[in-house]
Design a binder for these strands. Structure first.
Length: 300
DNA sequence: AAGTAACCCAACCGCCACGGA
DNA sequence: TTCCGTGGCGGTTGGGTTACT
């Protein structure tokens, strides 16, 4: 023995455990600038004391701008159940059909909520047959019909909850079609909002990769600072000129996401700071964090 | 209020597939 | 064809939080 696969990195020299906001920012900034062509070398080049795998996971599962946050909708949950029924534990395959959701997230939701719910509703702890399971075992009829039963039940519940929602939303009362409209519009909005980030992230994924001219860590951050401030000033120049409304809405979306990210990372300013800011409108722009700058750069 | 159990989810681990040398 | 490096995937773990006694 002893011929086992070499570990992906020296575990004694890498940091493990939860990511700090500083690390997140480093990772985001680096990927935003240089992309992530090589996860293995990324930590070294970015100055992160993390394993490349860890960086990849953090980016994919948490930092990607095109991620949806928050609870899964009923539609999403139903989709997961259906897809799991078809694909089994092929979480990445399922995730590929749920924009903005990660395989890890879906896996967690399945194990913590959906599986239990299925068990409760069917009365049996059946595991959907995996298409990859040994041989071509024909899926039991019961299995399928149980899922279908469940989905029907869920649809009915959803309809009634939609009715409740619409009643509370509209003073004049509404029919179910209107409810569906509201719902569809909501999802349309979400889809649009995140498609903006998809565009951005595509750029991040395949930038015409700059040859990173250094190996060292500290230098890159001063370089990034310079670069960002340059781009910021360029952006400001542009803003005085002819910026399309499309560009502005892009920026708004990125800002929204950035604000959300800041709160996720615990970088929000406290009340005192906000009060101070209210009194000093002039300083407001200057005090915006460098992270915001970073994300503004993404859309220019 | 304190202790414990249950739950949730981010992160880690190890294996596999794939592409290039 | 084989070997090696890398990314990706799915299973599992462990720490934090919430609910319960």
């Amino acid at each position: 023995m002893g011929k086992g696969r070499a570990p992906c990195c020296d575990k004694t020299k890498v940091k493990r455990g939860p990511w700090s906001p500083e690390e997140d920012i480093k990772l985001i900034s680096f990927i935003q600038k240089f992309g992530h062509e090589n996860w293995r070398s990324l930590p070294k080049q970015s100055g992160l004391l993390r394993c490349g795998k860890s960086c990849r996971l953090r980016w994919i599962n948490y930092l990607r701008p095109d991620l949806k946050r928050g609870n899964f909708t009923l539609e999403e949950e139903e989709t997961i159940i259906k897809l799991h029924h078809n694909y089994g534990n092929k979480w990445s395959k399922i995730a590929s059909q749920l924009p903005g959701r990660t395989d890890n997230e879906i896996k967690n939701v399945w194990h913590t909520h959906l599986k239990k719910r299925l068990v409760q509703s069917s009365g049996t702890a059946d595991e959907p047959a995996s298409p990859c399971s040994s041989g071509s075992v024909s899926r039991g009829k019961d299995d399928k019909s149980q899922v279908e039963d469940y989905l029907n039940r869920e649809n009915n519940q959803e309809s009634s909850s939609r009715n409740e929602l619409s009643t509370s939303l509209s003073s004049g009362g509404s029919n179910q079609q209107d409810d569906l409209k509201i719902d569809d519009l909501t999802f349309e909005y979400i889809g649009e909002a995140y498609s903006e980030f998809n565009d951005i992230i595509q750029e991040v994924d395949k930038p015409d990769l700059l040859e990173i001219p250094f190996d060292s860590d500290p230098d890159i951050w001063s370089f990034l600072d310079i670069s960002n401030s340059f781009q910021e000033s360029t952006a400001n120049e542009n803003s005085s000129g002819s910026r399309t409304t499309e560009e502005e809405s892009d920026e708004e979306e990125v800002k929204k996401w950035f604000k959300h990210l800041e709160s996720e990372l615990g970088l929000e300013e406290d009340d005192n700071q906000q009060q101070y800011k209210q009194g000093t409108q002039h300083k407001e722009e200057k005090s915006s964090s460098s992270l915001l700058k970073t994300y503004e750069v993404m859309i220019h």
